[in-house]
């Protein structure tokens, strides 16, 4: 069940506000570990540990560019989970809008034939 483990890693990675802030920063473009550490008052080793979690979760990729090791969002890291939740939300919204109308119709019927 490798996929399930990977999803757990994804959700665990997302459960931390610092890591979410780092993802939001990376959504604007690639950044090095020291650049990621700048806006948050956290030491670079601590940021490196967060980067490791994001790498293991498949949310972030790191390349080697001479002395630089820029991080960027991994293509597709969240797309599939996001697509699933989006589909579920859409299906449920349709369901409950229909249920609203059904419940209203029942009320109207009762008013007419109490």
């Amino acid at each position: 069940m490798l996929d399930t483990n990977k999803m757990d890693a994804t959700l665990r990675a997302l459960s931390d506000p610092t890591r979410r802030a780092m993802l939001a920063r990376l959504a604007q473009g690639e950044a090095t570990v020291s650049e990621l550490a700048e806006p948050v008052a956290i030491s670079q080793p601590a940021i490196s540990r967060h980067v490791k979690v994001l790498l293991e979760a498949g949310l972030v990729e790191q390349s080697i560019d001479g002395a630089r090791r820029p991080c960027r969002l991994a293509a597709g890291g969240l797309r599939e989970l996001d697509a699933y939740l989006d589909m579920l939300r859409h299906a449920l919204e349709r369901n409950y809008d229909r249920l609203d109308r059904l419940l209203q119709a029942q009320k109207d019927k009762r008013k007419k034939h109490p």
């Binding site: 997302l14 993802l23 939001a24 959504a27 969240l78 989970l81 996001d82 939740l85 989006d86 939300r89």
Partner: peptide, 8 residues
């Protein structure tokens, strides 16, 4: 990822 921000 924009929707990921909004939803997830």
């Amino acid at each position: 990822y924009a929707r990921f921000e909004a939803l997830f």
